[in-house]
């Protein structure tokens, strides 16, 4: 079996597992929808106010949903020992881990893209910015999964890793939040957004290349 076969096999396996446990797909999605529903209730339903803060609300909610879904990334494999086998295999651990992260994003990140336009309309965002919102989510949420994987790999061995995970991961999410929500903001005022999109792309490429290494190292540390 070549490396690319192993890589694809990992993705396939995780997708099949996720389809067997559909609640895992639904949970972050429901959370995302619920948090966004809470904002108008808490802030008040003035249309211009909601419209002004809509990009921020959607992105902060996406950030929180991504963070909450992280725990499922390695948890079951860690508990039943599969993770050990994956790390012991002759293939580079970072590549296999990248496969797991991609599968996890397909299950938890991609659905956010599907409901986001609906929620954006709820918040009264102008329709011409929906494309930009989707683009930033498409570029930004994989970064959240990749960076989050490092944090979850560090804490997977802990019994109460949840609180500490947010402390580790959220500060590292700040740049994505800034550029993504700003891009949507700019787009709604009709300004060019090339710079933000380029930076988001570079963040995606950089985390795609760099993040699997510390994730694999942290997993090896968590295993023993």
């Amino acid at each position: 079996m070549t490396l690319s076969h192993a890589f694809l096999a990992i993705i396939r396996r995780d997708l099949v597992l996720a389809l067997r446990r559909r609640a895992e797909i639904a949970n972050p999605l429901l959370f995302f929808v619920l948090v966004i529903t809470l904002f108008p209730l808490g802030i008040g339903a003035q249309p211009h106010l909601l419209q002004a803060i809509a990009p921020g609300i959607i992105w902060v909610s996406a950030l929180l949903a991504a963070m909450l879904s992280l725990d499922s990334l390695f948890r079951s494999d860690f508990d039943d020992g599969c993770l050990e086998q994956i790390l012991l295999s002759s293939y580079p651990a970072s590549i296999l881990v990248l496969g797991k992260i991609i599968a996890h994003w397909l299950v938890t990140g991609l659905p956010l893209l599907i409901v986001a336009p609906l929620l954006a309309v709820f918040l009264g965002m102008p329709t011409h910015t929906l494309g930009v919102l989707l683009l930033t989510l498409l570029l930004g949420t994989p970064v959240l999964s990749l960076i989050g994987a490092i944090g979850v790999a560090l804490t997977v061995g802990l019994r109460r890793g949840g609180m500490i995970l947010s402390l580790l991961v959220l500060p590292l999410y700040v740049p994505v939040l800034i550029f993504a929500s700003n891009a949507v903001d700019m787009a709604s005022s009709g300004l060019p957004i090339h710079a933000q999109i380029n930076i988001l792309i570079s963040m995606l490429l950089m985390s795609l290349v760099l993040a699997p290494w510390p994730t694999a190292a942290a997993l090896k540390m968590s295993i023993n």
């Binding site: 560090l154 580790l168 590292l172 190292a217 968590s222």
Partner: peptide, 8 residues
Amino acid sequence: AIAILALV
């Protein structure tokens, strides 16, 4: 663990 985190 903290070494990995600090390097990240």
